[in-house]
Simulated assay, not measured.
Amino acid sequence: MAGRGDDVPRPNPWRVRFADRRAAQGWNHLLAHARENLDRAWEAVTSDPRRVDSRQHPLKGALGVVKVGGDPLEQWQYEATSGGRLWYAIDDEARTLWITHAGTGHPRQTDQHR
């Protein structure tokens, strides 16, 4: 039972985890340079991971699917800043969003797939 002073859990939560050490380092770098933008990104992707708008959309082509723990998952992108990106994979079964890439610079991988 929850009581005074307890954290209030989200009613329909998504767990957010780093897919690897590089994603965690990129997250920390983005956090240091664009904290408010990253907070908005967190709210957007955990509220509706498949929302499509000017900042949030699925990656295309070979980048649209990524293996996490051996399982192929949809990979999406959130544009946190003009160049900063957050890539995440959606695991519906585990209700987990895997951060696969985070950084303040525009990822070169997307330039090859446009």
Results as ranks from 00 to 15, higher is better:
L31K: 14
P9S: 06
L30S: 08
A24T: 05
P9H: 10
G83H: 12
A41E: 08
D92G: 00
L38V: 12
R35P: 07
N12G: 13
R15V: 09
N37T: 00
A34R: 11
E74P: 14
W87Q: 03
A80W: 00
V66W: 03
S54C: 02
P72M: 01
Q109G: 00
D92I: 02
W76A: 08
H113V: 15
M1H: 08
R10S: 04
P49T: 09
D53Y: 10
T110M: 14
L86Y: 07
G105N: 11
V45F: 15
E36M: 05
I99V: 15
W98I: 04
R108T: 08
T81G: 07
H57C: 10
A102E: 06
N37A: 10
E93C: 01
I99K: 03
G83D: 15
A41M: 15
M1D: 03
R108M: 10
L86C: 08
V16Y: 03
W76E: 01
D20M: 01
D48T: 12
E36R: 10
W42F: 09
P72I: 05
S54G: 00
A102T: 10
R50E: 14
V16A: 03
G70K: 02
R17P: 02
V68H: 02
A19I: 01
H57S: 12
G61F: 00
H113F: 04
A24L: 13
Q56V: 07
P72K: 01
R85M: 06
A34E: 12
W42A: 13
W87P: 06
V52K: 15
A102P: 08
H29A: 15
V8P: 00
V8D: 11
S47V: 09
G103N: 06
K60R: 15
R21E: 11
E93Y: 07
R21M: 06
E79W: 00
T104H: 06
T96A: 08
R50S: 13
K67H: 10
P58N: 05
R85K: 13
D92N: 04
A44N: 12
D48Q: 14
E43D: 12
D71A: 03
P11V: 05
R50F: 05
G61A: 05
A34W: 04
Y78L: 01
T81P: 12
H29K: 13
D91Y: 11
L38P: 11
D111W: 11
H29Y: 06
R17E: 14
A32Y: 00
G103F: 06
W27Q: 09
P72H: 02
N12I: 09
D7N: 09
V45E: 03
Q25W: 09
A80N: 06
A80C: 14
L59F: 07
H101P: 03
L63I: 00
R108E: 10
F18R: 01
Y78M: 07
T104G: 14
W87I: 03
A44Y: 04
A23L: 04
R4Q: 09
